[in-house]
């Protein structure tokens, strides 16, 4: 049996196990809520993660089937949904993106279980899946870093805005110096930029 057929046939079970594994990284009181609340607005974390995992597996199956490279834009979007959330929760970087590696074990366990009764994908195909997931893991880490950098950027911007305000209150800033890049968020700066552009 080809790997994509195997994954298609067992998709529900694989996604369910994968989802349960990520839920186990949350306290038990929380994981019940994340699993059982189906409303995407009442439970954005659980629903985004589930939809992301399901989508990722769909993309992987499609990629294996056609033999073409994965749709990177779509993959990044799905990974972003999950990683952006875990990047601001109580997780170490490895824990935030580690769910990708988890899929390797889940699939190989499923294959082991199925071996007794049916034909299963070859070792070579499983290794190919491993390589593919390694690639996803690296992409997920890039996204994670982007999220963390964004957090620091937001912090830096707010701190800078505050300092600027204080300096201006103390009349320590000359209006003509306000077009420095660090002050671009401020009132009338947009206007100044336009005048400079003209």
């Amino acid at each position: 049996m080809k790997l994509y057929d195997f994954l298609s046939e067992n998709k529900t079970a694989i996604v369910s196990t994968w989802f349960n594994e990520i839920l186990a990284t949350y306290p038990s009181d929380t994981s019940n809520f994340l699993k059982n609340k189906k409303d995407r607005f009442a439970n954005p974390v659980g629903q985004t993660i589930f939809a992301g995992m399901e989508g990722l597996l769909t993309q992987i199956i499609a990629g294996l089937k056609t033999g073409e490279v994965l749709n990177k834009a779509e993959i990044d979007l799905l990974l972003d949904g999950i990683v952006r959330i875990r990047a601001i929760q109580d997780f170490k970087p490895s824990e935030a993106v580690g769910f990708i590696s988890g899929l390797k074990n889940i699939v190989s366990n499923q294959v082991k279980d199925a071996k007794k009764s049916a034909s299963v994908p070859s070792e070579g195909e499983l290794m190919e899946l491993g390589r593919l997931l390694d690639d996803l893991l690296l992409r997920a880490f890039d996204i994670y870093m982007g999220c963390r950098e964004k957090i620091y950027e937001l912090k830096a911007n707010e701190a800078r805005n505050l300092t600027f305000r204080l300096l201006r209150q103390a009349n320590l800033i000359n209006e003509s110096r306000m077009s420095a890049p660090c002050f671009l968020n401020f009132k009338n700066i947009d206007k100044e930029r336009k005048e400079v552009a003209k």
Binding site: Y26, P27, T30, F33, N43, D90
Partner: peptide, 17 residues
């Protein structure tokens, strides 16, 4: 009330229920 708090929903920390 447990799952109605934005901090619980976003953090998953039970002490935010």
């Amino acid at each position: 009330c447990a799952d109605k708090c934005h901090f619980f929903i976003g953090s998953g920390d039970p002490k935010n229920m």
